[in-house]
Design a protein around this nucleic acid. Structure first.
Ligand SMILES: [Mn+2]
Ligand SMILES: [Mn+2]
Ligand SMILES: [Mn+2]
Ligand SMILES: [Mn+2]
Lengths: 220, 220
DNA sequence: TTTATGTTTTAGGTATATCTAAAATTAAAA
DNA sequence: TTTTAATTTTAGATATACCTAAAACATAAA
């Protein structure tokens, strides 16, 4: 099992996410957009990742992640999400501040560090954005979840994650009082633009656009 | 204030240590030995560090660290030592396991991270090896300390730090029962080779070579 | 004061990770 | 089926961080 550089880890993680966990192929342009590097740089990197057998690369036809690549990507994701939990739970970061720092911390190479961190945090199963934390072996316990805008009128559910975890979106959620774990009920729907009104914890009413609702994931 | 790469931070830290905190000049060969890179690579790096004005570099005559360089080196040292405290105090690492990991963690760029970590750890003043942790502004509270082998017979003191913090030496100290904070008394001295016997906490007697004693720092 | 030795620098090369500009390829439109 | 447009790759640069081998330099020894 060859070891990856920081840049290779970042690309592989991007490919894993873009491929929806290895289900779809991913194009050079998609990766370029995600990584904010030029398509020419992506082509270079894909050749290298192909040589290391973490992706299957057919020129001009995009890439698929291999089993080995999936395993390595999940290790990086595990580290990223554990560090996010640490930052929020222990260092009192807010959930919109953790991403950049975790993007650096995820590359620290030490098996024992991650094992001890996991233990120290009480073996958390989800990160501050509701995303599942893979275990040591790369197993992810997924739970069924769907975008809030797909709920029927009067349906109830619980907010379990966000699709968009940009600082701007997370701060907006803080402002209106939506949070992971909140119990919600759809109290109104506007046919015209798909915007909805929800009741949070049987207390607070929030009105939101379809766009916002589409980035909130709920469990029914 | 230009920003440094990981490699530049590592070299600057080495130069700071080798120069005894900026007091002495440092040679290319010394740096080469410390960094385990070739002298030719060191010359390259010195030119770059000179351009960034963190050292004063006169070809063939070694380098001196500048005020700006000292400040930056102390920031890296601060981060290194805070992470070491975290690893030992929170993640239950032993003091001989923390160095390599802290050598990676020290490069994470986030002011707020270090502030919060410092706070979370209770603003520690010394790392697990007894070395002082510089504050945000690079101020170091030093305390007078001398090698144990320089103590007179029957003198008392307290172990406050180790000079050599290699895993082998630290594990040896664990084995014989010497630790930071221990109160000691020199109970015997062998003229011939400088080896000594000390009494730890008025309980345990330890016999050690001059070499070992020279790597233990005490406060009287 | 010249020579020898050790130290340091330069010259030139490799590997990673990026870029721009040009060429190649695929896929869509005419 | 040919042309066009979009995508992707290659070619050639740049920057960092290392290397080996050769040249330059400082200093200690003769
Ligand atoms: Mn990253
Ligand atoms: Mn997250
Ligand atoms: Mn380091
Ligand atoms: Mn230390």
């Amino acid at each position: 099992m060859s070891t990856l550089t920081y840049a290779e880890e970042n690309y592989l993680k991007a490919i894993y996410h873009l491929s929806d966990g290895g289900k779809k192929g991913v194009s050079t342009n998609d990766i370029s957009g995600e990584m904010k590097t030029k398509p020419a740089s992506v082509s270079d990197m894909l050749r290298k990742l192909g040589d290391k057998a973490v992706i299957e690369y057919r020129k001009y036809y995009g890439v698929h992640i291999t089993e080995e690549g999936k395993k390595l990507a999940l290790q990086t994701i595990r580290k990223h999400r554990l560090w996010e939990v640490f930052l929020v739970e222990k260092l009192k970061f807010s959930w919109d501040e953790v991403h950049e720092v975790a993007d650096e911390l995820e590359h620290i190479k030490s098996r024992i560090l991650i094992q001890r961190l996991d233990e120290y945090l009480g073996f958390p199963k989800f990160d501050p954005h509701g995303d599942p934390i893979p275990d040591e072996y790369g197993d992810v316990r997924t739970r069924p979840r769907l975008p809030l805008n797909e709920l029927d009128l009067h349906a109830t559910g619980q907010i379990v994650a966000v699709k968009d975890s940009s600082a701007a979106f997370l701060r907006y959620l803080d402002k209106v009082g939506a949070y992971i774990g909140a119990r919600i009920k759809v109290t109104d729907m506007v046919e015209f633009d798909g915007s909805i009104e929800i009741l949070v914890d049987n207390k607070k009413s929030i009105f939101m656009s379809k766009d916002v609702a589409g980035n909130i994931l709920v469990m029914q």
